[in-house]
Amino acid sequence: MSKEEEFVQMIQENQGLIYKITLIYSNDKEEQDDLYQEIVFQTWKSFDQFKKASKPSTWLYRVGMNTAITHINQVKKKPLMVSLDHSIVNFSEEIDAEKEEKIQWLYTQIRKLNLLDRGIMFLFLEGKSHEEIGQITGISTSNVGTRMSRIKQKLKSEATPKPTKVWN
């Protein structure tokens, strides 16, 4: 299998993961599309490292989060997005209204967290243990615990208002 084929396969297998990272780190649809493209591009750029990585999933989480951390700040004014004929991220399956409302509330609350806490919360929602979160993000397990309780408190202190904007 050629490098290009391996890369495409990896993107296809993990497109959901990339999409979820863009959900957490973007504020609107345009930003989300741009971030998706950027993660694909950065993954291609460092793809040789991926093949050597002992834990490919950890590697991909890291590249996705690292791209989001650096990219979102740099392109606030004008995204460097390429124009494509097709829509890349267009998941629009029907969800019942009440659930949709809760999901939008969840996105809104997560997006209020700082860049690292957003990643921690994302990994927690993905079902990762504190130890795994620590390994991926590079902080100690006890620090993960502390941050998780702080996040929990922040989220609890918020009411459950109706979202102002539904865009995914």
Binding site: E4, E5, V8, F41, L84, E93, I95, I103
Partner: peptide
């Protein structure tokens, strides 16, 4: 639930991945 729905989506086309890159 969100994850489940996302995973159900069609695979991104190979041509599109390389075009983005």
């Amino acid at each position: 639930d969100v994850s489940q729905k996302i995973e159900k989506q069609d695979k991104i086309q190979k041509e599109l991945v390389m075009e983005i890159t």
